[in-house]
Design a protein around this nucleic acid. Structure first.
Lengths: 136, 136
DNA sequence: TACTATTTGCAACCGAGTTGCACAAACTTT
DNA sequence: AAAGTTTGTGCAACTCGGTTGCAAATAGTA
């Protein structure tokens, strides 16, 4: 017996505990990225460090990616199915200065940059701040 | 009597107190961006909140800009002479995963992004992580 | 000089993130 | 099934960057 969430977990080599299923379910429902404190509010009876470690595990296994949107708390969002979080997989993020929501602009890959000589690239965090379509 | 630092402060409408002159001097010496904790280490006898407020003032007056490089502490670096910190003034930043230093790539403006319909742009934070020329 | 505004220093606090440790649950091996 | 091992969870405590209130000090002004 293996629903869609369990499959996702299994595909990323994560054992499907109850906690993980619940967290993944919430993450799946979101249209915008979510933070650990927000997750704590949703699961107000769950333990902070368990949620924390759940996110860490998910991130390590590349089920989710983290976005430092400058809000003071890291945001997390589901990766695309075959994402490896390599530079070529990365997309631009957008944070709304009104509603504070953080969007994955999955259709917009991070632009290629010509780094100065002897600088090598590992990853890119590109966050655009502005006003989102809901608030505009 | 008005040295170069005082002129810089004056140009940005900041009263040149002793503390501010010292902090600006340190900022001017840096080739990479610096954080509040680092600044505290340099001025080990100065007060944290004074340094904090000094940076805030500098940033408000656009003498410096802040970079959220994902290290956990905000970094600060001098703005270009006529910078207004508008989107078209922004440049790419680079953080080295070995020496942890954060560089302003002043020659590299942040690329223009075509946002989805009804999204409006205010600012961009683009941080590239990799290995710098010193560590390569 | 007296008054007002600004800056500084101190202390205390907040909140996100993190860790150690003991207990619980799941999985292995016989 | 029992014993042993690995993995996950819950709790408490802590770190650290950032921030604020307030009073003392300093600078600027009438």
């Amino acid at each position: 017996m293996d629903n869609e969430l369990d499959t996702k977990l299994h595909n990323r080599d994560i054992k499907p505990t109850a906690m993980r299923q619940l967290v993944l379910e919430v993450l799946t429902e979101q249209t915008t990225a979510i933070s650990l404190p927000e997750l704590e509010n949703i699961f107000h009876n769950a333990d902070k460090s368990t949620l924390y470690r759940t996110l860490k595990t998910f991130e390590e296994k590349k089920l989710i990616h983290s976005i430092d949107d400058g809000s003071g708390s890291m945001k997390y969002a589901l990766c695309q199915e075959k994402c490896d979080c390599l530079p070529q997989d990365l997309h631009v993020h957008f944070v709304c200065s009104i509603c504070q929501k953080t969007f994955c602009l999955n259709e917009i890959p991070v632009p290629t940059i010509n780094l100065p000589i002897d600088f090598t690239l590992e990853s890119v965090n590109m966050v655009i701040k502005g006003i989102c379509s809901n608030c505009n």
